[in-house]
Write a protein that binds this DNA or RNA. Structure first.
Lengths: 108, 108
DNA sequence: GACACTCATAACTGTTTGGTTATGAGAAAC
DNA sequence: GTTTCTCATAACCAAACAGTTATGAGTGTC
């Protein structure tokens, strides 16, 4: 699950609890499920389920150590998102350029 | 509704139909509801509802002309998304730098 | 005025989803 | 071996949601 579609990414990040978990992992680095549960306002199973979805979307990686599971953010996973926004911006700029060209031609 | 939280944006873009509508508006520019409905695989009321949500999220603007409504993408609306991804990347890099520093110090 | 067209809203429906509690599996601690 | 701890899964529930059809409001056409 190295790469994911924008669809999975948007869906995974659409939920506030999930986005908060991902943000914490980005800010503070690797953490156990227990640590993540403390501070999230929801139960441990809820946290586990969210982490499962984030993992499926390629946004986090897990590592088992003894009886705890450590999760960490996978930064690369955001690339498709950045690509998508960039693409939308480029479309927009292209149309803007076309309009500009048109206006210039009309001006002459 | 000039600006919106990342939450509204992520939620609005999480649905494939909605994202497709927004992509079409970015690529092809302003379009009527009728034009957008043709090509979307869903009914006109469904399209209208999605456009309503996109508008609420600040992603599109509408313009009434006679009996039709024209929608267009508002490019600026993606800014909070770009900011957010940038912030996450910066957190990640900061932690990476810390690790690098630590390793350097340990090396001496 | 009568009709046709375009879109939005209302009312409803089936599915998805974010949460819960209960429980089980695996790994330390004793 | 028994107990304790950590996490994941199962079963369930209420709310949110994406879609539908029916209808209404507003605007052009004749």
């Amino acid at each position: 699950m190295t790469d994911a579609s924008p669809d999975l990414l948007f869906k995974a990040l659409a939920d506030p609890s999930r986005r908060a978990l991902f943000e914490r992992l980005c800010m503070d680095g690797e953490q156990t499920v227990g640590a993540l549960t403390a501070g999230a306002g929801i139960s441990q199973p809820a946290v586990s389920k969210h982490l499962g979805l984030l993992k499926q979307a390629g946004l986090v990686l897990d590592r088992h150590e003894g009886r705890q599971t450590h999760y960490r953010a996978q930064q690369r996973a955001l690339a498709p998102l950045v690509d998508w926004t960039g693409r939308m911006n480029r479309f927009w700029e292209a149309r803007f350029d076309d309009l500009e060209d048109l206006l210039k031609r009309m001006d002459q």
